[in-house]
Design a protein around this nucleic acid. Structure first.
Length: 108
DNA sequence: CGAATGACAATCT
DNA sequence: TAGATTGCCATTC
């Protein structure tokens, strides 16, 4: 669980760590960046194995709905919501993020 | 090498 | 609308 230098994972970590505060990224989007638009699961899997030492802003990584995973990951999706809100991300009433507004534009 | 896993996505019921 | 199912692809055992 230490040699996570597996191209794909590494790229995921790199991209995620590049997400500026107040912005969010979707798994499918990251996967597309890596060249595999269908590898969204791999991104999630990478997060699952993501070393906390990297301080990856995984809370800025959300699914297409603008929502976060199951809820038993970081300590509760609600906790994530608070974190993101604190960074300036406004959530909708349904608990989803305004992706159109907060989606991080990687390709300048 | 083969089977299992996974924090998604899209489709179907 | 919400829940369940399948597909996809890389990593792990």
């Amino acid at each position: 669980m230490k040699k996570l230098n597996k191209g794909f994972f590494e790229e995921v970590y790199r991209i995620v760590s590049k997400i500026p505060e107040g912005s969010v990224m979707t798994y499918g989007m990251i996967a597309t960046m890596l060249g595999n638009p269908s590898a969204a699961r791999i991104v999630g899997y990478a997060m699952n194995s993501a070393p906390l030492e990297l301080n990856l802003p995984c809370h800025r990584v959300v699914n297409k709905e603008g929502r976060m995973a199951p809820g038993n990951i970081f300590g509760g999706e609600e906790k994530q919501r608070e974190l993101l809100e604190k960074e300036g991300v406004i959530f909708r009433d349904n608990g989803c993020i305004n992706m159109e507004l907060y989606l991080f534009s990687w390709n300048a």
